[in-house]
Structure formats: structure tokens, C-alpha cells
Amino acid sequence: MMPLVLTITAVVLSLAAGGAIIRIARGPSLLDRVLASDVLLAILGAALCIDMAVNRHLNNLMLLVSISIIGFVGSVTVARFVADRRKQPDES
């Protein structure tokens, strides 16, 4: 059963990653791209989880946590940056 699950999840996650990458490429604004790259990181984490579950090890757990840290820091930083850049003409 596990090879079948692995195939199904690989196809589904590849389609999902393709959709997120299309949104990164096409997204009209910077925030759309940040959101889509966050989703891409979540899809990567899902792939790591499925690898751990199918092969029964825990090697990827630290990588999973650090990926979520990177997504958090990245999206917060870009969100602050966007807000600051648009506010500056008002304050000067």
C-alpha cells in the first residue's frame, strides 16, 4: 500500500507545487508572491513529512522546523518592508 500512497502524494504535491510556482511567477503584487512562496514551503514540508512517514525515520524533523522558521521570518520581513516603502511618501 505504501508505494501507491507515495505515488499519489507525489503527483498531488507536484501539481500543488506547480500551482504555487505559477502564482509566484504571475502574482500581481509582491505580497501575493510572498504568500505563494509560503505555500511552496508548506508543500516542501509536506513532502518531508511524507518521506518520514513512508520510510519510518525522523531525520527530517529539524529541517521541517527550520523551514517553518524561514517561512515565518521571510514573510514577516517582506510584509514590514512593503508597508514601510509605501508609507514613506506620507511621512516625508
Binding site: 499519489i8 504535491l13 500551482g19 508548506a42 511524507i50
Partner: peptide, 17 residues
Amino acid sequence: FMVVGALMSLGAAIGLL
């Protein structure tokens, strides 16, 4: 659980598009 969890990612991608 694995298949449904992967479908969540697909749902997010469809929603993004």
C-alpha cells in the same frame, strides 16, 4: 492521513490560482 494532507496542499494551490 497522508493522502488527505497532500490534497490540502493541492487545495491551497488551486485557491492561490
